[in-house]
Simulated assay, not measured.
Amino acid sequence: MQALLSVAPGGPETLELTTLPDPSPGKGELLIAVKAAGVNFPDTLIIRDLYQMKPPRPFAPGGEIAGEVLAIGEGVTGFEPGDRVLALTGHGGFATHLTIKAATAIKFPDDMPYEDAACFIFTYGTSYHALKDRALLQAGETMLILGAAGGVGSAAIELGKAMGARVIAAVSSEDKAAFCKQIGADETIVYPREMDRDAQKAFSGQIKALAGPNGVDVVYDAVGGPFSEPALRSMAWNGRFLVVGFPAGIPNLPLNLPLLKGCQIVGVFWGASVFRDPQGHAQNVAELFTLYAKSQIKPRISAQFPLNQAADALKLLADRSVLGKLVITPGAT
């Protein structure tokens, strides 16, 4: 087998394509031939030791895979060789083969391509948990998405529309704005990459102008940094500000604003929720498959990379220049 390994803390340039012995499934495990691996922002952090999880080196990044079951370990029931499964792996997905706990594997529909399956659970799972479980988003409400052209942001656009919300997509370029309109956003705002106080005031004014006099009911903040405060200032009474991620840095928010606006700041830690509420997660996954079957959601894959070019995909993601999702196809050359 081959794997793209992190051998020392650092950027994508530190990863090494390595040939390893083929693994065998242990008790309770499945051996998977990885057909596709989704690329997500945590992959850019875990190789720098900046993520919550710090696996021992060497390890392969790649926390989301889809593939074919090749072999079954002792004690595993409900799976057979040839089954098509997807799984959240935490790491290890940038490889041709991988062993996973059978309990983490999810069979997916035959009409779903491996590439879609590998880009499905992380982004849609995060955004559906955020909007359904944390924000309690209601039809007719207005939602602002920061970083709307990225993986979780574009998933939030589709899910917000499927749930009946009015969606304002905030992005950093006209190309990203056009992409967001294409996948369903009602309105778009292009904000500058550098946000000083004057730019913050202007951004807040743009949000309020589009949201109307009542303000924004839900903010989906997948950016952080200086972009968060203008969004918080645009909140409606009883609004919900979702804390999803911080690629622009952890923001410093004035806590008088939630008091004055009667709004909530709500954390979204989907990975922890999966383990704390497995039944709720299973229900959400079933509902997401239904939305996919109805063509209300579909991963927006903008590029595919073979395993030996996976570092290039991570560089693009770290530069925040990606529209939708990137996918690694380990069997490609």
Rank of each mutant, 00 (worst) to 15 (best):
residue 106 I to Q: 06
residue 26 G to W: 13
residue 268 V to F: 04
residue 325 K to M: 09
residue 37 A to R: 02
residue 254 P to S: 02
residue 267 G to Q: 12
residue 36 A to T: 12
residue 160 G to R: 13
residue 294 K to L: 12
residue 160 G to Q: 14
residue 213 P to D: 15
residue 203 F to G: 04
residue 157 I to K: 03
residue 126 T to P: 15
residue 7 V to F: 02
residue 196 D to Y: 14
residue 29 E to P: 00
residue 150 G to Q: 07
residue 265 I to T: 10
residue 115 E to D: 04
residue 195 M to A: 01
residue 85 V to E: 01
residue 272 A to R: 05
residue 106 I to R: 03
residue 287 E to W: 11
residue 247 P to A: 02
residue 312 D to A: 14
residue 126 T to I: 10
residue 207 I to A: 01
residue 233 R to L: 15
residue 52 Q to S: 03
residue 314 L to F: 08
residue 275 F to M: 13
residue 230 P to F: 08
residue 290 T to K: 10
residue 161 K to V: 15
residue 206 Q to R: 14
residue 174 E to A: 04
residue 310 A to F: 04
residue 28 G to Q: 09
residue 4 L to K: 01
residue 34 V to D: 00
residue 272 A to S: 13
residue 237 W to F: 11
residue 21 P to M: 09
residue 243 V to K: 00
residue 192 P to K: 10
residue 323 L to W: 01
residue 135 A to G: 05
residue 61 P to S: 08
residue 207 I to D: 00
residue 110 D to Q: 15
residue 117 A to H: 02
residue 191 Y to R: 04
residue 175 D to R: 09
residue 58 P to D: 06
residue 27 K to Q: 11
residue 239 G to W: 13
residue 301 I to H: 02
residue 77 T to P: 04
residue 77 T to I: 08
residue 75 G to P: 04
residue 31 L to V: 06
residue 27 K to W: 12
residue 96 T to I: 07
residue 221 D to P: 00
residue 263 C to K: 02
residue 61 P to W: 13
residue 324 G to L: 14
residue 199 A to F: 09
residue 206 Q to K: 11
residue 7 V to P: 15
residue 240 R to A: 14
residue 254 P to R: 09
residue 178 A to N: 11
residue 217 D to I: 02
residue 112 M to P: 01
residue 148 A to H: 10
residue 102 A to G: 08
residue 37 A to K: 03
residue 118 A to Y: 07
residue 12 P to T: 12
residue 148 A to E: 06
residue 17 L to G: 03
residue 320 R to N: 11
residue 16 E to P: 01
residue 150 G to T: 10
residue 166 R to F: 12
residue 217 D to L: 01
residue 44 T to G: 06
residue 251 P to G: 04
residue 220 Y to E: 04
residue 223 V to A: 04
residue 125 G to P: 09
residue 288 L to R: 10
residue 272 A to Q: 09
residue 59 F to L: 04
residue 55 P to V: 14
residue 155 A to R: 10
